[in-house]
Nucleic acid binder design. Structure first.
Lengths: 221, 221, 221, 221
DNA sequence: GATGAATGAGGGTTCATTCAT
DNA sequence: TATGAATGAACCCTCATTCAT
């Protein structure tokens, strides 16, 4: 406690407080964003429990206390990280699925969007985090289910059921289990985190092969 | 650990009287097994970093120090846990895949074995652990890749390539990416950990639907 | 501060919008007074170490930095608080004691002044603070001794010795230990802070009873 | 977190854990008592909030973590400190007050016991702590009221009322406010903490003078 | 072997203090 | 003057690890 009546403030007795480290002209000094980005790095690297806010702060270029100006505690930081990354994704996904085109075309678009917007970005790391930490963070799991999974499932299911009625896809199996459409995406994310250094995975090809299996071949690279 | 998702301040009674002695005279010989089982429980419940060896010991009915008689440290305990659970699985899987039956039949057997031997047992929790903690434990990831993934992939790939040559499956997409065969299994495991309480998943039906999509319908339950 | 006796995690809204602007145009001129008043509230409520300048500032309706325009640091704020409240009291007390009336009359006046000017005001809280924090603030204790205690003691002692010589009081015990005259006042202050909610204390009656014991009965309410 | 997958445990990578510092043959290694004694020292010196458990541990000759083997947290340590010191006092006090002797004799015994058992021991520091910290620790205040104050008050009141009935004391003022009997004791404790270095107080003489005032002179030293 | 009390480094969180605006 | 975002030292508490018994 800095306020304890004297006791010689260990070192630097008269300079304990805060310099604003005005980092050179960078434009927005948006600390909140910087902290979230750093948190994603550290949480991805070590997992929630083992990540240190000290490292988050250093990586973000702020002092440790600064984190607490923007987030109530470590857990809130984690939750807001997930929300901020996942939130914006939702509308886009739903929009894509609602277009009334042939199922295969829509499926291709969804897959392509997955590869571009998730697998190709830091969002894949957030999804990895959700998979890894979700069981210990019921709120995160619930948020993710409510805001993402259930909506995507509903959208895809509607799309596929119509396609099945039009006979575009062999059975309505896919409509019952829309998870099957994105299952390889999940595999890709998990594979990336665990095995890529032993055997890299061509995700685009994987997803194309998957679509070929579901809808019958078309033209493959 | 402040980061553990909150837990009712475990009321350590200030002089920890309670010491759970084990049942019979000189103890079950397999303390090692008991510790591994307890470790699986605790690691599953909290994740590696947040699990406490104190809880593992209590759950196993041994003293904390005893763990160190059998395992070098917490990390070694985790690694051996994975090994001990995953190891025995391998031969069986390979055996199944080598039988030279029609691809669909073999695929069905593999899927059924997955449901019975993995999804239906604690092994699914170990796989969840590998997914969650693997990136922080390169040795675990490598072991799992070397001893399980690469072998299963090779076996399945051989099987499917032969089937594709015989025209039993439409394309060789599956042979290129055998991951596609088990992708729904992975989804099921992840789903179970995160979303089952919102929307339970009928894994057997999911896997059957998946096979129907891959091989064309046949007879569905 | 983990040591503060628990307080519902003050819900800092992560971007602390609310900033209580003061009422009129360019502000009440006596920010200093406002800060001192707020400091008395907070120090009384939590004690010196656990009080937060943040709360003092909020209560005073100023920014945190403003405190440092008027006081060197937290300790100086505390010292000046004590001075500003105790200082004005002194002359009055001395004046009362110097009047050359019968001892009992003077004692009654002193007691009455204590009840009215100390026990009935926030000054009692300052005295409580001195009692509680004094040992850690030698300067405060010294100031209080030099400016208050020693003077009051001297005044009361002179008064009583004269009274004893005139035979108005049975012995010179009181003159040797003028503390005995105010001891019940101290008890009242301490009692108020600790036990009033269990058993309220009628301070006026207590003081009257005390005088009756010292000087022999007269007329009691 | 010591368990974080590697990161070179800063210094002494293989010797992080616990040596039992078996202090030379001392008899009881009663750590609990040592910690309580050290806590009394530190809390007295700095107050509850500003005291550091680090210092308590050092003073007790144990490691910081050891404190938590015996006490749930800092607050529990404080509460148990008060209880352990105050508790044993109660019966003795009650016993003394119940003897049916002339009031003055009993009062003298009580006063003498106060001087010997409280003022002459560390218990006076605990009472100072209660006065200083009680308002922030309602449980402490309640415990102290329930277990000490209310009982002592009741005992003294009974004693004095009987004495008043026998005409031994002039009025029943004292029976109404037994606090008046011990008020100088409180003054002595407070004085000791604050002003002894400026003007030492002869407590025994103070208490004797007090009794003389209450009961009429007898023989004074 | 088995125990569990003891250790002490480590990390989340707080808050007095500073200073650019 | 006044502000309040930023700082970082400090401190409570946890828990992997050790070792005398």
């Amino acid at each position: 406690m800095a306020a304890r009546p004297k006791r010689a403030r260990s070192v630097r007795p008269a300079k304990a407080g805060g310099h604003r480290r005005r980092r050179n002209g960078e434009g927005t000094p948006d600390r909140r964003e910087a902290i979230l980005a750093a948190a994603l790095d550290e949480f991805s690297l070590r997992g929630f429990a083992a990540a240190r806010l000290d490292d988050v702060a250093r990586r973000a270029g702020v002092a440790k206390g600064t984190i607490y100006l923007y987030f109530r505690d470590k857990e809130a930081l984690f939750q807001e990280l997930v929300r901020s990354v996942i939130g914006p994704l939702i509308e886009r996904f739903e929009a894509s699925a609602e277009i009334d085109l042939p199922a295969r075309v829509v499926a291709e678009r969804i897959v392509e969007m997955f590869v571009r917007e998730i697998y190709g970005t830091r969002r894949k790391d957030v999804i990895r985090l959700i998979i890894a930490e979700g069981p210990r963070f019921p709120k995160i799991a619930e948020f993710y289910y409510r805001e993402v999974i259930s909506r995507v499932i509903a959208a895809v299911r509607g799309l596929l059921r119509r396609a099945a009625e039009r006979g575009e896809i062999p059975a309505e199996a896919l409509a019952r289990f829309p998870q099957l459409l994105v299952a390889p995406g999940l595999v890709a994310i998990v594979w990336h985190g665990l095995f890529d250094r032993f055997e890299p995975l061509d995700v685009a090809a994987l997803m194309r092969a998957h679509l070929d299996l579901l809808f019958g071949e078309r033209r493959t690279g």
